[in-house]
């Protein structure tokens, strides 16, 4: 690529220069090669703020071509304002098509959810990560954190789970449940709900985690062992809706969110919900 090519690229409205994309692809490959390991990368500033999906956006821009089809959701909703904003940035910058249907998407960027269905071997799921370090709750010093990961020394995580169970009778970790990937690294599963955790295990799709502010990329390659940290005799629990049903589609098989009155429930995955209604 010549200098003038690079300048032409810039003038065509790209959000990242080509060198940056190459760098991000290299970091992504390293992440895939070492499942769960947080690969540092030279995270660039994006037209969206740090904490607003700048890491996910950089990965999506680096892996998306004009023949791709992208889906962008926030909280499971294609219509969330942040999802809409990111989607138009991705499509205008890459020339990719857009969709709300996960099975049609080659790249799905998401904040806080995995689509209920539709992801397969041809899919890449890009999750926006606010806090990539799963051990920060038990250790603040980054030098010590690096050591703990290097030695797979996770006993303090186990102690925190033990203490939680002793104090509260249940494990109270809510979203972003810590998981052991490929029997080696503990990762923060963004804040996706526990509901989505079992679907990371042995998943057919590639999941890429982008933390722009903390400048880390990590990955769960397809068909990787993903185990939520829990004791052998304390079953991992997903969110319990106590038999509630979505007031739009009437289904209870998806992750439901409630209105403040606690009696009206809705599917968090709006596209899945719409398809249920269509097929009814």
């Amino acid at each position: 690529m010549t200098l003038s090519d690079l300048i032409d690229r810039h003038e065509s409205g790209e959000l990242l220069d080509e060198f940056a994309k190459r760098e991000i692809r290299r970091a992504t490959l390293a992440a895939v090669a070492i499942p769960g390991y947080q690969v540092p990368f030279g995270s660039r500033e994006m037209p969206v703020a740090r904490g607003w999906g700048s890491g996910g956006l950089q990965i999506t821009l680096a892996v998306t071509h004009d023949d791709d089809t992208v889906k962008v959701i926030d909280q499971g909703d294609d219509d969330g304002v942040n999802a809409v904003n990111l989607r138009r940035l991705v499509t205008s910058s890459t020339g990719a098509d857009e969709t709300t249907t996960a099975s049609e998407a080659t790249v799905t960027q998401s904040r806080h959810r995995i689509p209920e269905d539709g992801l397969d071997e041809s899919s890449i799921l890009v999750l926006q990560v606010p806090v990539p370090e799963p051990l920060r709750g038990v250790e603040r010093d980054m030098r010590e954190l690096a050591r703990m990961h290097a030695e797979a020394d996770y006993s303090r995580m186990w102690v925190s789970l033990y203490e939680d169970k002793v104090r509260n009778g249940v494990i109270t970790q809510t979203t972003g449940y810590p998981c052991l990937v490929n029997e080696r690294y503990v990762v923060a599963t963004t804040p996706i709900p526990r509901w989505d955790i079992p679907r990371l295990h042995d998943a057919p799709f590639l999941t890429l985690f982008g933390a722009g502010r903390e400048k880390r990329i990590y990955a769960i390659p397809p068909y990787t062992i993903v185990e939520p940290l829990t004791f052998e005799d304390v079953p991992f629990e997903v969110e319990d809706s106590d038999g509630a049903r979505c007031s739009l589609c009437g289904k209870s098989e998806s992750f439901l969110v409630s209105l403040p009155n606690s009696t009206t429930w809705l599917c968090s995955d709006t596209d899945w919900c719409a398809r249920q209604r269509g097929s009814r």
Partner: peptide, 9 residues
Amino acid sequence: LPHYVTFRS
């Protein structure tokens, strides 16, 4: 940003 998924959990 919306945090209703995490809050629900």
